[in-house]
Design a binder for these strands. Structure first.
Length: 467
RNA sequence: GGUCCCAUCGUCUAGCGGUUAGGACACCGGCCUUUCACGUCGGUAACAGGGGUUCAAGUCCCCUUGGGAUCACCA
């Protein structure tokens, strides 16, 4: 089995979006599964639209998702001499020619063709020119065959074929001497020894002309795998109007990279009835043949469910680390004081769907003087409540073992002693400790807060609840 | 419009000639519960339409319809 070489080749004209991330993931997975090489290449031949910020954003996205590459990043802008060389060679071999038609002329012809209901296609005016016209600007066109069929077997879509008469002589070098996309892709993929090209299926129509280019240059044609597009809820191509499309925006919204990976891979790929996959499992189970042929709708709800799953089952210490920046945004720094963050996380994991919710839920632990939810106070604090809390604080203060189960025991004892039910004191305790009526189990909260802090908050509340 | 691709619950999908068409998200109920959740049990819900091939079609073939992509000196 020969060594596979794959690549992800984004153009740096924006951030790493959902669709690009999935393409990168499929490339990465196949490379890792087959023990091949994964290459990152930045397609920046359009100097005007490419920016360093975009390059940085893409690399950041790749790193966040944990998609590491073995070679690169390579920049096409560094390879201009190589492309030039290949253009000259095709020219010398008569496989390409100089075209002196101006952009304006071409545009006029295109309009005319469209108006007459014909296919807008280069008419070959300069195809048979025998001599150069010195001093006039020109582009270089590839001399494509007019007859025959160009076919390939797509690893995802199956057999696909085009009649060559549909193809026209594409421009491979612009008037300013820079090469165009369809040409550089082929030169790069050939020179980098790419064996399998996995890319979006919006490139299917480019494939036949690229194959012709490979053949003209005498290079082996790689295998192609065109992955379906990702759609928005209205079944049109996913775009900003459907919400966030940048993967980093999802990090900022409190999503975990493993949830994003798991969601992305299941959008268009499946392995029986399984839903949850770790990266390691994916590397083992992924096959490009199992990728579906049809476009899929991006479903934020399912992503959210997966995120909740990974938060629920995640390692508290790791989550605590990831939580720090979100807490900082809320003015909380666990390093300054308060309970251990991992312990706090443990009490919140099963009720948070995002890191944002986790952070919101953690704030009260680090707020010595919680602001009481007045509505909750009005509803749950009765004239006798302060007395109950006072008694509870006293008994708790004497507890030898301040952990969940013993605390629960103390609670029951106090209730029995006072002749009340849990419902008559629970909500008030929750308000005293957390400020509101929504929180983890109060026994857990007490254990994490510790005896001293618990009693202090209880006593503080007694003062506030006494009228 | 030409060319190309696609088509199972609302969504992601399983299915690779014979199934009560399965799972997941979402949704709706029950249970659990001092809150919110989690968990758990159950429910609603699909083979786009029409022709073939076959003893038998969601599965194979053709047509129709619908959706998408692409037709640049962008990538």
């Amino acid at each position: 089995m020969s060594h596979v070489r794959l690549r992800f080749a984004p153009s740096p004209t924006g951030y790493l979006h959902i669709g690009g991330a999935r393409t990168a993931l499929f490339n990465w997975l196949l490379a890792r599964k087959l023990g091949g090489t994964f290459i990152l290449r930045i397609e920046d031949t359009d100097v005007a639209r490419s920016t360093q910020e975009s390059v940085d954003a893409i690399l950041q996205g790749m790193e966040w998702l944990g998609l590491d590459w073995d070679e690169g990043p390579f920049y096409q802008s560094d390879n201009f001499p190589l492309y030039k060389e290949h253009v000259e060679k095709l020219l010398a071999e008569g496989k390409a020619y100089k075209c002196y038609c101006s952009a304006e002329e071409l545009e006029a012809k295109r309009e005319k063709a469209l108006a007459e209901g014909r296919k807008p296609k280069y008419d070959g005016t300069c195809r048979s020119l025998t001599a150069d016209i010195p001093g006039r600007p020109y582009v270089v066109r590839f001399k494509a065959p007019h007859e025959g069929v160009t076919a390939f077997h797509d690893l995802i879509k199956g057999p696909i074929s085009f009649n060559n008469e549909e193809l026209d002589d594409l421009i491979i070098q612009r008037t300013d001497g820079t090469p165009t996309y369809n040409f550089v892709v082929v030169v790069d993929d050939a020179s980098m020894g790419i064996t399998t090209v996995i890319r979006g299926d919006d490139h299917i129509n480019n494939t036949p002309r690229q194959i012709l280019l490979y053949e003209a240059m005498g290079c082996p044609v790689p295998q192609f795998a065109h992955v379906p597009m990702i759609l928005g809820a209205d079944k049109t191509r996913l775009s900003k109007r459907h919400g966030a499309t940048s993967v980093m925006a999802y990090r900022d919204m409190g999503f975990l990279p493993e949830a994003m990976i798991n969601y992305l891979v299941r959008l268009g790929w499946s392995h029986g009835d399984e839903e949850i996959f770790s990266k390691e499992e994916l590397v083992e189970k992924f096959t490009i043949e199992a990728v579906g042929k049809s476009a899929g709708v991006f479903n934020p709800d399912k992503l959210l469910w997966l995120n909740a799953h990974y938060i629920k089952s995640g390692d508290p210490a790791r989550l605590a680390g990831l939580l720090l920046p979100f807490l900082a945004e809320r003015g909380v720094d666990p390093a300054v004081g308060g309970p251990e963050l991992a312990a706090v996380v443990k009490t919140l994991q099963e009720r948070a769907k995002t890191m944002l919710e986790l952070a919101d839920g953690a704030v009260f632990y680090y707020t010595p003087e919680p602001v009481f939810d007045e509505e909750a106070v009005a509803k749950h604090v009765k004239p006798e409540t302060a007395g109950y809390l006072s008694r509870l604080a006293d008994v708790l203060a004497a507890a030898a073992d301040f952990r969940h189960d013993p605390i629960e025991g103390v609670f029951k004892e106090v209730c029995a002693e006072l002749g009340i039910k849990m419902g008559q004191i629970g909500p008030a305790v929750r308000i005293a400790l957390c400020g509101g009526t929504v929180s983890p189990s109060i026994y857990e909260v007490m254990e994490v807060l510790g005896k001293e802090e618990t009693c202090r908050r209880l006593t503080r509340a007694v003062a506030r609840f006494t009228v």
